[in-house]
C-alpha cells in the first residue's frame, strides 16, 4: 500500500514526522530514502520532537548510528550511506531492529538484505517545477500495523 502527499516547506515535513511519532512503538522501523537534501534528516528531527527528545538531532552519517535515550522511547537514527560497498552484516542491525526503540534508517537500499518484513518506507522527491522547498513524500507500508498508521497520520 502506498500513499503520496505534497509538502511545501521543511516545517511541514517536520510536522508530519512529529505526528507519526505518536503512533510509534519499540521495534518499529521507518526507512527514509531520497537524494541528499531531500528532507530525510528534517523529517527525523520532527519525529524526535514527537518522541519528546530534546537533544539536537545531528547527522548520523559519520558514526552510522546515533542513539537518543531521552524521549518517550529510545530513537536509533541510522545513516547507512557509507555501507555502499558492503559491511552491513557486521553492524548488528538486527539487534537494533529487535531492540527497545524506534529505528529510523536513511539510505535503506544499502542494507536491503538486512531488513525485516514489516516497515514503513518514506521516499522523498523534489518537485523542480515547484521550487526548492516542495517535496513529494511517498509512504509505503509493509504490514497491517503500518498500513493503519499511514491512514491515521495522513487521513483516509
Amino acid at each position: 500500500m502506498t500513499k503520496t502527499i505534497r509538502v511545501d516547506s521543511a516545517n511541514q515535513t517536520m510536522a508530519i514526522g512529529q505526528k507519526l511519532a505518536q503512533y510509534l512503538a519499540p521495534q518499529d522501523l521507518i526507512l527514509l530514502d531520497g537524494d541528499l537534501g531531500a528532507g530525510k534528516t528534517t523529517f527525523t528531527k520532527g519525529l524526535a520532537k514527537g518522541l519528546g527528545i530534546t537533544r539536537p538531532i545531528k547527522s548520523p552519517t559519520f558514526t552510522i548510528i546515533r542513539e537518543y535515550q531521552d524521549g518517550r522511547i529510545p530513537l536509533y537514527h541510522m545513516d547507512v550511506y557509507r555501507l555502499e560497498e558492503g559491511g552491513a552484516d557486521d553492524l548488528g542491525l538486527e539487534e537494533y531492529f529487535n531492540g527497545d526503540g524506534v529505528n529510523v534508517v536513511e539510505w535503506s537500499k544499502f542494507v536491503a538484505d538486512e531488513l525485516p518484513d514489516h516497515y514503513l518506507r518514506i521516499v522523498f522527491r523534489r518537485d523542480d517545477s515547484e521550487g526548492d522547498n516542495v517535496r513529494k513524500l511517498t509512504f509505503e507500508a509493509k504490514g497491517d500495523r503500518f498500513e493503519k498508521m499511514i491512514d491515521e497520520v495522513l487521513g483516509e
Partner: peptide, 22 residues
C-alpha cells in the same frame, strides 16, 4: 558544537554532488 552536519561531513556531501569520492 554543530547542530546538524559536521564540517568534514559537509565536505563529503558536497563532494558527492561534485562527483568526488569520500
Amino acid at each position: 558544537e554543530t547542530r546538524d552536519d559536521a564540517a568534514g561531513e559537509a565536505y563529503d556531501k558536497i563532494g558527492r554532488v561534485l562527483g568526488i569520492n569520500y
